[in-house]
Design a protein around this nucleic acid. Structure first.
Lengths: 130, 130
DNA sequence: GTGTAAACAAGAATCATTCACATCAAGGAG
DNA sequence: CTCCTTGATGTGAATGATTCTTGTTTACAC
């Protein structure tokens, strides 16, 4: 049975927020941003829905940057650059993880490979200048 | 000036512990393990020295697995397999991150690349069977 | 209306990590 | 040897991100 849009107002707003940004945001960032439209949303709702989306495969986690988890609504495999200065995260385009690595990983681990993550860390242009 | 070995007894024990295991351990694991030899070591000392070693480049961090940070005394670039079931981490040998990606990352990010991490996530042989 | 189930808010609880501060050990100067 | 400085440490409190608990609200089915 279809549910009304209103029933999922907040859940949808959280997902829409993630999908409309290139920020690779934290839970806190999503909370602050969604609060602009829906002032009575709570942080627990953001956390609850983020982990739901993650289970459902609608978003992925980049892991933690400076102790806080960062999310990405772009579930296509792609490469990240993480600035250790300011914590910003960029997508790097035009780079593929060679497919051969994936099956080699499955073979070597003796198990099942679900995902793969390639990321570079360093200083972004801004932070490198300071 | 050289310092006596005794002055760094605990610091050295922490580093030795990291170097003698393939566990990719957490701070807690290091604490419990070193405590076998040095019962009066404290968890703060473990944390303190781990972040010191990290600054000095003697160890690297894998990032967090299930909310806890994991360390690796093998600073050679290599690939990891992380089991999302039991949290174990394996080294995958015979895989290189193509060098071309590194310079492409530096170019695209407009900054400086310090490190690179490639990891696969999935279920290890044991966990996949359950 | 009544019942049901999911979504939610608020705040408490948890847990990894860090901090503040007092203490201790080692080495050098006198 | 005694004083002094320096860095390493233990203890316990503090922090901060994340999760849990409980009671409330919402939308829908009957």
């Amino acid at each position: 049975m279809e549910r009304s849009a209103k029933h999922f107002r907040k859940r949808d707003a959280i997902l829409a927020c993630l999908r409309s940004t290139m920020e690779h945001p934290s839970a806190e960032w999503v909370y602050e941003t969604v609060r602009g439209q829906i002032p009575d949303i709570s942080l627990a709702t953001v956390y609850r829905n983020l982990s739901l989306f993650k289970e459902q495969g609608l978003i992925t986690s980049l892991g933690t940057v400076n102790g806080v988890e960062r999310f990405d609504a772009n579930t296509e495999p792609h490469v990240h650059f993480i600035c250790t200065g300011c914590g910003s995260v960029l997508d790097l385009h035009g780079m593929e993880v060679p497919e051969a690595l994936n099956s080699a990983a499955a073979r070597e681990s003796g198990g099942r490979v679900d995902s793969c993550q390639l990321s570079f860390a360093g200083m972004c242009g801004n932070c490198a200048r300071n």
